Computed example of a mutant assay.
Amino acid sequence: MFTQGQIDEHRERLQQVVATVHHFSALIFILTFVGYGVAVYLWFQDQPWAGLIVATFSYLFFRQFRSLSVGLARMKLRGRPGFAETWNMLDEAMKSERPQAVILALETRLRAPRE
């Protein structure tokens, strides 16, 4: 997916991308479970349909959190110098793999000891 040369050349920017993706993933995860809490609250307030709708939207939001977190990271880091080439490299990898697989492979390669 990525060559060692690509990893070495873009290491600092890739580390920022992974950290930003994890930050947004955690935020989406928290928001999802807050939504589930609101759904349970609505359910016990004798508004089962409202609770069901909130729970459904929370679930759908959670199902998209990987691609959404990558998209939000892209928006945050878009204007920074040098990131255009890094995002092009990631986009090429995401054409053949899912975002979660690309980020996992990238994180694994970044944490591996340098030879």
Rank of each mutant, 00 (worst) to 15 (best):
E12N: 11
R78P: 01
A112D: 10
G79T: 07
M1F: 11
A93S: 05
T3P: 05
T3I: 11
A50I: 09
L31M: 07
Y36F: 15
V40F: 15
A50E: 15
Q45R: 11
I28E: 05
S25T: 13
W43A: 13
R66V: 15
R11S: 03
L72T: 03
V70I: 10
V18E: 01
L27V: 14
F83K: 00
G5V: 07
L27I: 09
P99N: 03
G5N: 14
E85Y: 07
F83N: 05
R78S: 13
F24A: 06
F57W: 10
L68R: 10
V34W: 08
R74V: 03
R74Y: 13
I103G: 00
L72V: 06
L31E: 04
F44Q: 11
Q16I: 02
P48H: 07
L27C: 06
K76C: 00
R78T: 04
F83S: 00
I30K: 06
I53F: 11
G71V: 01
F33G: 00
F33C: 00
Q47K: 15
A84D: 11
S69F: 01
F83M: 15
E92L: 12
R13F: 09
Y41T: 09
A50M: 15
E12S: 13
S96Y: 14
K76G: 00
V18N: 01
G51Y: 07
M1W: 04
D46A: 14
A19D: 12
V54I: 12
Q45M: 13
F57E: 10
F61L: 12
Q100W: 11
A112Q: 13
W49N: 12
L27R: 11
A112R: 07
M75C: 08
W43M: 14
S96K: 08
H22S: 13
R111F: 04
F33V: 01
Q47S: 15
A39Y: 08
F24K: 03
W87E: 01
F61E: 00
W49K: 14
I103E: 00
L31K: 01
Q6L: 06
Q16E: 14
M1L: 09
D8W: 04
A101M: 04
Q100I: 10
D91I: 03
Q15H: 08
A105L: 12
L27S: 08
K95M: 11
F33Q: 02
G51D: 07
S25P: 00
R109V: 02
Q100N: 12
R114S: 11
V17L: 09
R111I: 05
L90W: 07
V40M: 08
R66W: 14
L14W: 07
E97N: 15
G79L: 02
G37N: 10
S25L: 10
Q16C: 04
H10E: 08
T32H: 06
P113N: 09
G5C: 08
T20L: 05
F62D: 09
Q47H: 13
Y59L: 10
F33L: 00
L72R: 05
F65H: 15
R78Y: 11
A105H: 08
L90R: 01
H22V: 05
F24S: 03
